[in-house]
Design a protein around this nucleic acid. Structure first.
Lengths: 180, 180
DNA sequence: CAAACTGTACCGTCCGGTCGGTTCAGGTCG
DNA sequence: CGACCTGAACCGACCGGACGGTACAGTTTG
């Protein structure tokens, strides 16, 4: 089955791109590097992703898909489930080394319009979050804090130490829970 | 005074770099482009900043200097003055088009270690912020939200609309004020 | 004069993308 | 069955442009 094999290659390529990004930084996501990392040849990679933009776009798609999946795994009955889901996605990704957020940086450097799918997704999420609470501003502050967490982790910015960070996250959680 | 003139050129070069970044994105900060924008020749630029890393490093230095300056302008008596200062720096830069945060992206793409000065500065600020309050976790959440604001603005991510954003910022302010 | 440039030609490298193969599974046809 | 063809998947040499940096011979300015 040819198509299945191609999809398999695409997945390998995407995870290779993630590995490169995690190891060498977003700026080093290069077609040659990703091809080498994936075990494919440059030609083979370009067969799957005809252009670098397509590759980065694929990365973002994968990120959004995983994000949606994690969002779906939040218990249905939680009052601010979308918001909680967002928080969990950040915390979850904290454990993994292959950082998909890198793709965001690489994409925005190459062509800011690549982020459009992310923007519409996020806009929808925000709308959803706001509709799930009476305290829209409070929820927005939580959204901002979550994005701050991503930023911090992405650029290895200081977080006041593990203990304080953990306490801050705990506080964020209770803030979200008390949002109603 | 030769050195003074050099500093003047350096400033022109840096603001040119900011203009390029704001207009064409962080990925387009190139020596030729900045030279052209600044009105200097390429040789002249390289006379001031012998390497691209030096140029980006200079950008970060300028950013940190402006940041410190704005921090200093917050009234002395405010309880969480460092935290308030951080918030104001974000809001202030929202008005200007030349976005220095771009430099952060460009720098992290070229060489993540360029961000080290930013990291130590930020670490110091956080330490300061924590020492100014009894509620360290709450302050950290505020810090995160502020960084989220930066992130959002930098990547043009959706913010739920101007009204909601303004209300969220207002909420953030009161949160900070009530921190004690 | 020396510092602070200008202007330009040039170099080497990196990188995105092209292109002409090659392999191979499967289908067609005599 | 076997000769032939096809098209998907992949290979890797190569090209051209962008970009960082060098070199250096002038020119302006304090």
């Amino acid at each position: 089955m040819p198509l299945a094999k191609s999809r398999n290659s695409s997945r390998r390529i995407l995870s290779a791109a993630r590995a490169v990004a995690a190891r060498e930084g977003a700026g080093r996501i290069t077609i040659d590097a990703v091809a080498k990392e994936s075990g494919l040849s440059k030609g083979g990679l370009l067969y799957n992703f005809p252009t670098k933009k397509a590759l980065l776009s694929g990365l973002l798609d994968q990120m959004l898909a995983e994000h949606r999946e994690l969002l779906g795994s939040v218990p249905e009955r939680h009052p601010s489930r979308t918001l909680r889901g967002h928080l969990e996605t950040v915390l979850r990704s904290k454990d993994e080394d292959d950082d998909l957020s890198m793709a965001v940086l690489a994409a925005s450097a190459l062509d800011p319009t690549l982020l459009d799918p992310l923007r519409v997704e996020l806009a929808g999420d925000i709308e959803c979050i706001v509709s799930e609470t009476q305290d829209a501003p409070g929820a927005m502050v939580a959204v901002l804090a979550i994005q701050g967490l991503r930023f911090q982790k992405l650029l290895n910015l200081p977080d006041g130490g593990a203990v304080l960070r953990e306490r801050a996250i705990e506080r964020l959680r209770t803030m979200i829970d008390e949002l109603e």
